[in-house]
Amino acid sequence: MHDDLDAVPTLAEFLEVIAIAIPGTSDKFEGTSSHPVFTAKLTNGHDYQGQTSRVWDLNDATFAAADSLNALIIESVTAAHGRTVTLTDIAVALLQLLRRQDRLLADIAGADVSSISAQVNSGPSPAR
């Protein structure tokens, strides 16, 4: 994302790209028929509020990298727990990743994120 934006992404942009790259249903992932949305809560108790998104300025390589990250999470959870992965599992894995990477995001340190949750929008998934 950094190369496409000429800047470090915000938490909102990171979560949006990962959500867009969520795969369909498979034997390892329960999937979703609608567009998932990840939201974050901060350690100060507030809900995270993102800025204007630059996600639609990104090229396909960024979404391919997000696909790969999602695939890695799904494979890891499947191997560790022997079950179908859920959006909640992906949210937990993303939180673990962010909490280890304080310089990954432009607007917030990973340690300042207390939780990430996943919801499913009722509308169609956005096109890439």
Results as ranks from 00 to 15, higher is better:
R128Q: 14
I90H: 05
S117P: 15
T43F: 09
D89M: 02
G31Y: 05
A40D: 04
E30V: 11
S117R: 15
A109F: 11
E13Y: 02
T88Q: 15
L104Y: 04
V17F: 04
S33K: 01
Q101G: 06
S122M: 13
N70Q: 01
V17Q: 06
Y48R: 03
K41H: 13
N59W: 07
L72V: 11
P36W: 06
P9D: 00
K28T: 11
S34K: 08
I73L: 01
G31A: 04
L94A: 03
V113K: 02
G50D: 05
D89E: 05
G110F: 01
S122V: 13
P9E: 00
A40L: 07
N121H: 14
N121L: 15
S122L: 15
S53Q: 10
F63Y: 04
I20Y: 15
A21S: 04
R99N: 08
A118F: 09
A109V: 05
N44D: 10
G31S: 08
V8P: 05
W56C: 15
S26K: 03
D107S: 02
N44I: 04
N70I: 00
D47M: 12
A12E: 12
A66P: 05
R128S: 12
T52K: 15
I74L: 00
D112Y: 07
I18V: 10
D67Y: 05
K41V: 12
D107C: 03
K41M: 14
M1C: 11
A21E: 02
S122Y: 13
I22Q: 12
